[in-house]
Amino acid sequence: MASIEVNGKSYETDEEGYLINLADWTEEVGNYLAQTESVVMTEAHWEVINFLRDYYNEFQIAPAVRVLTKAIGKKLGPDKGTSQYLYELFPYGPAKQACKIAGLAKPTGCV
């Protein structure tokens, strides 16, 4: 099993670097995962990450991109509910990359 080390503590990940245990996640771990994805975290990034974590806690799944986009638009305003906005923040795919930083498993149906 692969693992990452953040502040001297080791966390299990799968081969693609997704956290195995959702409960392991901390903001520091999120920052570390963002670095591995070459994403520089801003407030706008955290807004999406926190949204994803809330969504996961409520529904126990990571949303599909289309669903994420729609839900973000509803919660954070229509200007943010576009795939363009989300891809600007997470160039390699909001679902895939943002989910990883948020400590979630890869979304169902996401290749």
């Binding site: 409520e58 529904f59 126990q60 799944i61 949303p63 599909a64 669903v67 729609k70 839900a71």
Partner: peptide
């Protein structure tokens, strides 16, 4: 086991 019952509530969003 994972409790997947909350996921039925996500269907509306899908």
């Amino acid at each position: 086991n994972k409790n997947f019952s909350p996921t039925y509530r996500a269907l509306d969003g899908y």
